[in-house]
Design a protein around this nucleic acid. Structure first.
Lengths: 358, 358
DNA sequence: TTGAAAGCGCTAACAC
DNA sequence: GTGTTAGCGCTTTCAA
């Protein structure tokens, strides 16, 4: 655990510490022979430059944060891996900031950019409308939003980017498909988060209904309460919110299906709620697809092997991850400019969880 | 993006920079009034201490790394979230280091501890037998291994910890359950990694066979080749290895099932291979559980909703994550001592993917 | 092509 | 209780 410093490499090689720095960073002029000797010494002594010192000296950390609510969603896993691989190729590191839907934790993590610990942030933050968020953006810290939007910064030079799946189209695809099968009472299970995206998701639903001449009934939209304030683990050492969300989903969906016996099709907007919905469907004694058609959001490797194989709206998560990482690095390394936007299309993958309405 | 420094807070408040530092860190003596004024100034100016500077001055970063091959395994997701939540409570951050099974990337990430970027590491590194690994351990860098072991360091004071599921018992549970149902030709689908754990996994298999008076046939153990050298994304922007692994699994399993028609039960050791195995089973025209009984490793939320509901050996992933994080923080904050060990028990969750042998 | 020197912004003795 | 001072290990002008 002996720390070798650049000073020792310099002494060993008989050069100045500045020359060592130049060869480490491969900039400035260093004589080939000298460079070779220095590199040999670094190898021999197992020298690795101290990152903390470099960070302080350069004012950069080559580390960015990823603020997500949870990884319990295959789309987030895909995105996270894609982000990390892309960042690695570009010489950046990734700090994981899962919030478990807790807004306080989210805010704390977002601050890390301001504290100089992170060069930037990729996030699908819940409180995207909060003042902290706008402040960050206005202070020109590099931020890329995933499936979020932010009003009031149009045209202003910031270091903000947006990577979005076309959410309205995603919900449209699902709704239109079900309506095309003859379903007239199509339920939606969603979260209660006040997201900037919520209205676009429902927008696609309404758009599809209208196109098919169906009426929008707000009672068909069932929001499941997400606990955003407690995220500490309970005695069981289990993430409390995961369980709470599951229970809340089972209950809300069960009551919904019971209260609305004429609902013949269901769209599940958030993957995290899917197991709860499936359980509730079983509990109320309905069968998919015979008694209820089902479309879920996000594809996942097991979807073809469910009973029945699940029809889903697939999100181009991996591509979104790559784009987000590319975009963030560009924002970090370039001056502020008007916000960048990338919009990707979702895709309906039809399997066997839907049937024509009798 | 104006950077406020402690110096400015000091000037604003009319105290020295040292006093500001004391109130930030809440150590040493600071008069209550002075403290209040400093805190007010910090709040007013939106001051946040620069992390890079603190890291350099203290020689610590309060950041640890998590080196995993992939997040495409629910057990790893559970573990990652648990680790992150525990670390957060203790004031540490988590750097994600996914390797996509690439050994070079793995080694690169492991070095981050030596470069002073990370205070420690939690890992299930593949090359746990490699010299780099032993070197890290011998240099007393805090490392916690998950489901790995390391020989030759017994009794030596190091900063090493081990959190393990009882792998031998896990395989024993699965094998014994299937043998108890009357199966005599029980196949195992595993990876080809030269892991220190592989023999323990197979040990449980052999142990259960022996206890049931069945013979061990090495032909019943099918290893799927894992590509450990390429991890760059391909033109499709898709993690190459994920696809490659999937294809390799489908093919190897398909050939295995065709070559071994008398195999009536299958144990799948790695969750990442499960979709490939399920697909291969379909392709060769076998049906679970009628033509083939199946036990998979790691439980996951969708397991009860597969066709058929899947019998699994569940890993206490969340608890393992908490333990690993607790252990690592202890190793970081305390002097070297003989390695710590935690061994947790797996659990067989019986659903409907197995039937008695006819 | 190289070296000297001044920081980067903070912490931690040590003195008062 | 508080201030002074010397670093932490590197990068980066500026001279030589």
């Amino acid at each position: 655990m002996t720390k070798i410093t650049a000073r020792q490499i310099a002494a060993q090689t008989g050069v100045s510490i500045a020359t060592v720095s130049r060869t480490i960073n491969n900039n400035g002029y260093v004589h080939a022979d000298v460079r070779a000797r220095i590199e040999a010494a670094m190898r021999d002594l197992g020298y690795l430059p101290n990152q903390a010192a470099r960070n302080l000296a350069t004012g950069r950390t080559r580390t960015v944060g990823l603020v997500l609510q949870t990884l319990h969603s295959p789309a987030f896993v895909d995105m996270t891996e894609a982000i990390q691989m892309t960042l690695r190729e570009k010489g950046y590191f990734l700090l994981m900031c899962n919030t478990q839907f807790n807004q306080q934790i989210e805010t704390d993590y977002l601050r890390l950019v301001q504290s100089g610990m992170l060069d930037g942030m990729i996030t699908n933050a819940i409180n995207d409308t909060a003042t902290e968020m706008r402040q960050l953006v206005q202070q020109n810290y590099p931020i890329v939003f995933i499936n979020r939007s932010l009003t009031g910064i149009e045209g202003q030079p910031t270091r903000t980017g947006f990577v979005q799946m076309d959410l309205q189209h995603a919900t449209f695809l699902a709704t239109d498909y079900l309506a095309g099968l003859g379903h007239r009472r199509i339920g939606v299970i969603t979260g209660d988060m006040q997201l900037s995206t919520q209205q676009r998701r429902l927008g696609g639903y309404r758009e599809a209904l209208q196109a098919r001449g169906l009426e929008f009934d707000p009672l068909l939209v069932q929001a499941v309460a997400v606990n955003r304030n407690e995220a500490t683990r309970d005695g069981q050492l289990t993430p409390k919110n995961a369980n709470a969300l599951h229970e809340a989903t089972v209950q809300a969906t069960g009551e919904f299906l019971t209260a609305m016996p004429d609902v013949s099709a269901l769209i599940v907007i958030y993957h995290t709620m899917l197991p709860g919905v499936l359980q509730a469907i079983r509990q109320v004694g309905r069968r998919v697809p015979d008694d209820l058609s089902l479309v879920a959001f996000s594809d996942f490797p097991m979807a073809p092997f469910l009973d029945p194989p699940l029809t889903v709206v697939a999100q181009p998560s991996t591509e979104m991850g790559h784009k987000a990482a590319d975009m963030l690095v560009a924002l970090i390394e370039q001056p502020a400019q008007p916000a960048q936007h990338v919009l990707l299309r979702p895709e309906l993958i039809v399997r066997q969880s839907c049937k024509p309405y009798p």
